[in-house]
Design a protein around this nucleic acid. Structure first.
Lengths: 359, 359
DNA sequence: TTGTAAGCGTTATCAG
DNA sequence: CTGATAACGCTTACAA
């Protein structure tokens, strides 16, 4: 079966011939990139001066810096990050460990973080931790070797040994998505306990009193449950059902969950599904198994997304600005690295309850 | 406003005391990682032998390798990738440039690719190209410095100068998401032209004859339009409307598009929306502006996702296995790097038309 | 199969 | 503010 070829339109670059050091005899892809020494020669200074001129922090006279920058432009010099990392013990790579790449919230955070950091001359390297201690430890191990300039976690590191290890790297670290008392370094956090409280408040405020919770058994799931449970108790509402789900891979897991919940709908009238994919999946499934949302069952999710907003009925959520989390994390790391800020930072990202059709 | 703290549950690592070289005097985060020399000492061989034992390719006697591996385990040695990269001119980082991180298809591809490569000892570094020549060029520039072990593009590189530059890196490169005659190196491709043909076939087969197309004006959008247009002509169907959309950021852009299309529904009876976010957005918007899908307007998207499958009505799509693309790309790069395969590879990923409620 | 010597390109350190 | 020197940790090239 011969496939149909695509007649891809190729575009010629605008003839932007900045450099004449090309097109000499680069037959076999080995036209060696110019080194710092070449720039130094061109600028009439020593290599170390070039190095200094290119790193904002150190002191070089304005005139020299100008000449160096001109030489860099002329030669098209790009620093070798490996050599730099080897000698300085620090790379220009900032590592981001995300719980997953599917949820819009983590995506948004990663995208915003990458944008900020790229503007500051760093690359963001994205990895997944996927909610498992083994993955967490593996991630930390690979960090040790990589010697990243900074680290962003879409969560908090949970194993004590890993916390210690990460702290010892001595680089800026931003944890997020929770609000612990003792972050490793910096924090752009949301309070999961508070989120749970808000969920209970919301349900009871709307006259629901027989509540259910769906979420992970550990980590943020537990925190959300803690808040939910505590506030429910204060309000004299009953938590009839707690369903722990630990390996959510996709929204179709939400379907399974809703099928289960459906058998309880005489006993429960509201469920806080503390996972974005699960909540969306459950809401999608409702019509097909005859559960009327919110009449039979009120559903509240966490973490806003376009899908949540555009579904029918639309999904009510405990929301926060995930892009902001990523952007702020990037800013904190960048400013720490440029020496602008030194103090540890602990920021709180506000939560809001977005009331929509599902609750 | 004092936020509510999360009482995060910390977990102690299982007391897995593999190494006794710790806990000496590492007061200030500077417990230097062990180097290859330490492993060599432990194993009673020279550093270079350790180096060789750890890189599968080179020849070391089985007995020696065993001793080296034991020493590595005992010392907890992790190779410094920067030193390695500096000396060898090749890093263990494989770069992935994705069109975006929001679409499930690219996500799936990236996740699958990362998984394969991590198993083979590489890290996947994810960047975005976001459909712009400027971004494409910037991406290639950063690659030059990074000297990655391999490169995966969720697309084909379009600027000639960039193609040349990438080819000159001399590392395994996988392009994808299109089926050009002359890939830079390897290809795990889908035929966009074919996708357009299939869309036209589908519509005409269902009795639709007044067609519309929505997609990017360049790149894969154009290819899909080419196929769509060509087949429509062959089948005597009319393409009434072509709407080019170049900066799709989110599904809400699909709403705008559907509003526009709605004013044409007397003239068109089917639309091929050659962008996954746009198609989902359009389908979500339909009820609220009184367009009945598929009665008034038949909608076909491209690239399957869970949302496409679970919406009401569900979205018909030209589908292919995005996870497979990423996985295969990872495999090709890994096997090239381990010396297993040498020849260029050109693979075709089959397309299928998933008929659902929207068409 | 294993070892010796040298060097990858940058930056820390110390001197001027 | 600028420069000379050495070193970061590893792997290539060559020798045994």
């Amino acid at each position: 079966m011969l496939p149909r070829f695509d007649e891809v339109v190729r575009v010629d670059a605008p003839s932007n011939n900045t450099s004449k050091t090309k097109e000499v005899g680069a037959r076999e892809g080995t036209s060696k990139p110019i080194r710092i020494e070449g720039v130094a020669l061109e600028a009439g200074v020593s290599p170390i001066t070039v190095s200094r001129a290119l790193r904002a922090s150190t002191s070089v006279s304005p005139a020299t810096r100008e000449r160096v920058l001109a030489a860099v432009r002329k030669t098209g010099y790009v620093s070798n990050p490996h050599a730099s990392a080897l000698r300085s013990g620090r790379s220009t790579i900032v590592a981001a460990f995300l719980s997953n790449l599917v949820s819009q919230q983590y995506n948004d955070a990663a995208t915003a973080c990458a944008e900020v950091l790229e503007d500051a001359g760093f690359q963001l390297m994205i990895g997944q931790t996927a909610y498992s201690y083994a993955r967490e430890t593996a991630a930390v191990q690979s960090l040790r070797a990589l010697k990243p300039a900074g680290i962003f976690f879409s969560g908090v590191v949970e194993l004590e040994a890993n916390r210690r290890a990460v702290r010892e790297f001595g680089v800026p670290v931003v944890e997020s998505w929770a609000f612990p008392r003792d972050p490793i370094d910096m924090l752009v956090g949301i309070s999961n306990t508070e989120a749970g409280c808000m969920a209970a408040d919301h349900f009871v405020g709307r006259g629901r009193r027989r509540l259910a919770f769906v979420g992970r058994s550990g980590g943020r799931g537990r925190l959300r449950l803690n808040g939910f449970r505590e506030r429910a108790r204060e309000l004299n509402a009953e938590i009839v059902l707690v369903r722990e789900v630990d390996h959510v891979r996709s929204i179709s897991d939400g379907r399974t969950i809703l099928r289960e919940l459906a058998s309880y709908t005489r006993d429960i009238d509201a469920v806080f599904i503390a996972n974005d994919l699960l909540a969306i999946g459950a809401l999608l499934e409702a019509p097909s198994i005859g559960v009327s949302v919110p009449h039979d069952l009120s559903i509240l999710g966490i973490g806003d997304s376009e899908f949540a907003a555009r579904m029918t009925p639309s999904l009510s959520v405990v929301a926060f600005d995930a892009s902001f989390v990523g952007r702020r994390a990037g800013q904190l790391i960048a400013s720490r690295l440029s020496g602008t800020s030194k103090s540890p930072s602990l920021e709180h990202v506000p939560l809001s309850l977005v009331e929509r059709g599902s609750s």
